[in-house]
Design a protein around this nucleic acid. Structure first.
Lengths: 163, 163
DNA sequence: GAAATAAGTCAACATGACTGACATAAAATC
DNA sequence: GATTTTATGTCAGTCATGTTGACTTATTTC
């Protein structure tokens, strides 16, 4: 609250600026999920299935415990969607070699195809937004989003130089 | 695929950059909603109530139809949460003066207080992220988020000069 | 050998979304 | 003035996704 500059100065944050931030997140997330949701509905699956397929694709051989810590839902909630996906052969399970209690999860070919079709709409949306905004804006976006995310998970997003 | 530069160049969008964008949205929204959800749970309300209280606070005297078009849910879904909020006197309804079919929605004092307590956590999170990121990053964030949001709703976010 | 961990299961429940059908009052149009 | 459209509300049923609590099994760690 000491140095007030002209233009949008985040050191002088008005009520209105913060409201706008809240709304940007609401509308962006709403529109970001609408397309995959529509595809999922056609094949009798839901957003929860998408999330599981997404993160299993992202981290092949992920364990159930790791997946739970990402999704932050209960084991019982995950169980339902995961067993759907295993039954319908989108996801394969195999025991861990070091720890045989673990069930390592991977996408089947069918799962890879599903993940792709679901995330394609999202990738296209991001790509278009990034292209329209330019490199500098993308870096700003990344920085602010990281600030919104709890510190524990920021390490999942290595800085540009390290990518 | 033609010009490869160093650093994050959104004209050369790698699979990995797009994935990161998807994940930034997932984690940010997850953490952004966690705190108000916890508060709501204590008073027996849910996220849907928060959204209604938020947008009635944002647009005093909003009509039901307008609210539906923002939330993009069905009338029946809104009806339940809205009647909870009216019964518990967080929201007041009064007929429109020009069109007496309309029920104009406003927050009661109790509703204003609820809205504030719910959104305070979110405002604090945004404020902290904005401060840490700096003015330029905030503008980049705004630009990318607008690109993600469907064009129809972008007019809700006037450019900095007009704010 | 005992304790902790990874995973799964059963049961019951809450929330928030949906569809479809129908009702009422008021406004707009023919 | 009669008809149609619009704004809102409601009843009934369903589904997806989350929750808690209690318990089991297999395996690893101490």
């Amino acid at each position: 609250m000491t140095d007030i500059k002209s233009g949008p100065n985040p050191l002088f944050l008005r009520e209105e600026d913060l409201r706008q931030g809240i709304e940007l997140l609401f509308y962006a997330y709403r529109d970001f999920t609408a397309e995959p949701d529509a595809i999922l509905a056609r094949i009798g699956l839901g957003r929860a299935h998408h999330r599981v397929v997404y993160f299993v694709g992202r981290y092949p051989s992920i364990t159930v415990t790791e997946l739970l810590s990402i999704l932050q839902i209960t084991k019982q909630s995950l169980s339902r969607v995961l067993s759907d996906l295993v039954e319908q052969e989108y996801i394969a399970q195999r025991p861990g070699t070091k720890d045989r209690r673990q069930r390592l999860l991977t996408l089947t070919d069918k799962g890879v195809e599903l993940e792709r079709s679901l995330s394609d709409a999202q990738r296209a949306r991001i790509a278009q937004a990034y292209r329209a905004a330019g490199a500098a804006a993308v870096e700003g976006f990344r920085t602010v989003m990281l600030g919104i995310i709890d510190a524990e998970d920021r390490a999942k997003f290595p800085p540009p130089g390290k990518r």
